[in-house]
Simulated assay, not measured.
Amino acid sequence: MTSTAIREGRAARVRPSRARTKRKLVTLALLAPALLGLVIFFVYPLIASVYYSFTRFDLVSSPQWIGLRNYQYLFTQDPNVWQATLNTLWFVVIWVPVKVAFALLIAGLLARAKRASGFWRTLFYLPALVPPVASVVAFVFLFNPGTGPVNQVLKFFGIQGPLWFNDPAWSKPSLVLLGVWVMGDIMIIFLAALLDVSKEQYEAASLDGANGLQKVRYVTMPSIAPVLLFSVVTGVIAAIQYFTEAAVASGVASGKAVIGEGISNNLGYPDGSLLTYTQWLYVRGFGTYQLGYASALAVLLFVVAAVILILLLRRFKAFTPEGAQ
């Protein structure tokens, strides 16, 4: 009888163990397609890029190991990489905050609108549906210094309009204006977050004697902090990878709207002011077929982006209710 009880106890312990193993296998099987895609389209390309960054590779011949020569050339000899880096950082520091601030401002106004709110929401959101290339081409023609309607209106009021996309000092601010015009995707997210803030919190703040700015600081901002973080993080990623708008603006403004084979002829026009890091990476990788050096540029971009995002996520904790505790 004692041996029978021992066997029954062992069987009872084995059954839950087998059930847990079965559940783990089923879970792993369900996750397998996603994990496989992650390995194929992220892990493998990342490892391959790191390897190729230490080689001389042109897609024709086999990769030749050259150690740190690509990185040495990147930091000490490349004539355009630092200008491209500074232009990209300009978009991160200026373009992202301006776009997020305007989107938040418009969302706040729409959240308080009581008449024709649907019309105004649609009106501000529609530009976000315009394809990037089409919006850039339209903006370049609108801001044409000679025949564009913007300068014509300024001239009517006695104001001498700038050269916009043809002036190195105004080319990047012109793209900022474009970013403000197409901020509808962020605006609609902010609007949903603002409408979700409880009215009881504002009423309690009013009873405590809080003014409008204090309500924004202590009620609105903590409530929408996760949405604000999401918008800033995605904006920073988009600014670091900024390519299409700058490349198309350079081509159209210079009169040579060619991307690919002829990109080096109008690269960063005017005077390299719109040359971004990803454009330079593209030219070195697919213009001159220096895939090894382009991989080094890509690895550096990945590291810098990861560091910026980690610092940004840590900084945002101070503005969340959990971080304030």
Rank of each mutant, 00 (worst) to 15 (best):
A128N: 08
G158M: 07
A192T: 11
P270S: 10
L38T: 11
R314F: 13
V176I: 15
T288Q: 15
Q152H: 13
G161P: 08
G148S: 10
A34G: 12
F190R: 02
N265M: 10
Y125K: 01
A32W: 11
M1G: 11
L109Q: 03
T220Y: 10
R56Q: 14
E245I: 00
S17Y: 12
V233S: 07
L312N: 01
I189A: 05
L267M: 13
Q152A: 15
V140W: 05
L59P: 00
L313T: 09
N144Q: 04
R217Q: 13
L195N: 13
K22F: 12
L110S: 04
T278N: 08
R217T: 11
F91P: 00
F316I: 06
L123G: 06
N144A: 04
V180F: 06
A296V: 02
S223Q: 14
R284H: 11
L213T: 09
G37K: 07
P222N: 09
V304C: 09
T88L: 09
A298S: 15
K22Q: 12
P132A: 14
T220G: 04
R112L: 13
I94R: 01
Y293I: 06
Y73E: 11
Y277G: 00
Y289G: 00
A305G: 09
P132Q: 13
A247W: 02
N211F: 03
I159M: 06
A5K: 15
L297V: 14
L213A: 12
Q241P: 01
S231H: 00
Q83R: 14
G148D: 10
I224Q: 07
V81L: 12
A134Y: 04
T320H: 05
I106F: 08
P131R: 09
A138R: 01
N151V: 08
A101C: 03
F139E: 03
I237E: 02
F286I: 09
S3N: 11
I189E: 04
V50R: 00
L311N: 02
V232L: 15
F102D: 01
R15S: 08
F41S: 03
L207T: 08
P132G: 11
A257M: 14
Y242M: 09
T276N: 09
S223R: 09
G146V: 10
A205T: 03
A103T: 03
A12Y: 12
N265K: 13
I40D: 07
L74G: 02
W164G: 05
F75E: 06
G287E: 04
G148E: 09
F75V: 13
K172M: 13
G268I: 03
K199S: 15
R69Q: 15
V304S: 11
L30Y: 14
G262Y: 07
L175P: 01
L194R: 02
V176Q: 03
I308N: 02
T244F: 00
A12H: 08
W90I: 02
V133G: 04
G146W: 04
N80D: 14
S250D: 06
G268M: 05
S206I: 08
P226V: 02
N70K: 07
I263Q: 14
W181C: 03
F156V: 09
A306W: 06
G118H: 05
P222K: 10
F91Q: 07
